[in-house]
């Protein structure tokens, strides 16, 4: 266990189910288990990467932590306070400390508000500033994210995707948060713009001491920006480890196949790389398989995997995995070397 004073966010057995309604009277006929019992910590000043494929529940996790979706069960401690127990008003007063950067820079900015209003709105909501002080703060924030303060009076539709994402970042920073959930902040952007935004996020973290939960499906970008990485599949965390530990020695078969599927911009490496390409598609989160949720696609699955839910355990300091087979002897390996570091 890590030093409790160093932990900013602690998530305990978090669950978020979305009801499936059906029939004439909208009866609840089932539930989509978007997040199904996950536990992890985020340390002060670190970036925790959360990766997984679409529908694995990574975005829902981010929103459930910020209580944008109220969790079905479990606890979320932020600076020691259980957010799930707070009233709406108490939560509202906590909001300045934890903010979110959204995936879609087109949908997340109100088209009828000027950039100045968008960036300054959080300050107005919490009655922190008005008049010239507000204007100066907005100008300062725009400069901080690399935009010309003169753009304050422009409207979102006049900006490119990358510029809009900067506006969204400025807005998230306006309240001096300590924790930011970045929900796929770069996946809608062009490659050369992605690098700009990622560099900006890293610079801001250094300057302002921010803590990030960085949600993405792009493994190479997550590896680049994160200190630790959690891999999700069908609402559960499969593996969580230090960045280099995860890539050098991935223990979960899913992590191994995921990493082996990521292409690299090195033709010679691509030609010789070992791959394990998963067949089929992930099952539906409305009806997840019994036992280990990954057993339907796992090449190593044994009888135990089909019936018994694997325990999420710390197999070595800081390296957590939820797999029956994982051990130090390498019983859970499907590939000997996921990425050869030299060709």
């Amino acid at each position: 266990m890590t030093d409790p004073n160093n932990v900013l966010v602690r998530v305990e057995n978090l669950k978020k189910y979305f009801p499936i309604t059906g029939g004439l009277f909208g009866r609840v006929v089932g539930a989509i288990k978007a997040v199904d019992g996950i536990t992890f910590e985020i340390k002060k000043g670190e970036t925790l990467g959360l990766v997984g494929e679409s529908g694995c529940g990574k975005s829902t996790t981010g929103r459930a932590i910020l209580q944008l979706h109220r969790p079905t069960a479990g606890k979320v401690f932020f600076e020691g306070v259980d957010l799930t127990s707070l009233s709406r008003e108490e939560l509202r007063r906590m909001r300045p400390k934890m903010q979110m950067i959204f995936q879609d820079p087109y949908a997340s900015l109100n088209p009828r508000h000027s950039v100045g209003k968008i960036v300054g709105e959080p300050l107005v909501i919490h009655n922190l500033m008005s008049g010239n002080a507000l204007k100066e703060r907005v100008a300062e924030l725009l400069l901080l994210v690399g935009l010309n303060p003169a753009y304050m009076r422009r409207y979102p539709h006049e900006f490119s995707g990358g510029q809009r994402q900067r506006i969204g970042i400025a807005r998230a920073l306006s309240l001096n948060p300590s924790f930011i959930v970045c929900d796929e902040p770069i996946s809608a952007l062009d490659v050369s713009i992605q690098a700009q935004v990622v560099n900006l996020l890293q610079d801001l973290q250094e300057q302002l001491g921010l803590t990030y939960l960085f949600i993405a499906h792009d493994l190479s970008m997550v590896k680049h920006i994160s200190h630790r990485i959690a891999v999700m599949y069908l609402g559960k965390i499969m593996e969580l480890a230090d960045r280099n530990d995860l890539f050098d020695d991935p223990l979960h078969p899913y992590t191994q196949s995921l990493i082996s599927a990521v292409p690299t911009p090195v033709p010679k490496l691509e030609r010789v790389r070992q791959r394990f390409i998963l067949t089929g598609d992930p099952p539906s989160p409305a009806n997840p398989p019994a036992g280990c949720v990954f057993h339907t696609r796992c090449p190593l699955a044994v009888e135990e995997c089909r019936t018994l839910v694997p325990e999420y355990r710390e197999i070595r300091p800081g390296h957590y995995v939820a797999c029956h087979l994982a051990d130090e002897a390498g019983s859970s390996k499907i590939i000997t070397e996921v990425i050869p570091l030299s060709v």
């Binding site: 509202r92 909001r95 087109y106 900015l109 909501i125």
Partner: peptide
């Protein structure tokens, strides 16, 4: 997205 963004900023 922008309504969600307003909620996360603490809007009433």
């Amino acid at each position: 997205g922008f309504v969600e963004s307003a909620v996360s900023a603490g809007a009433t």
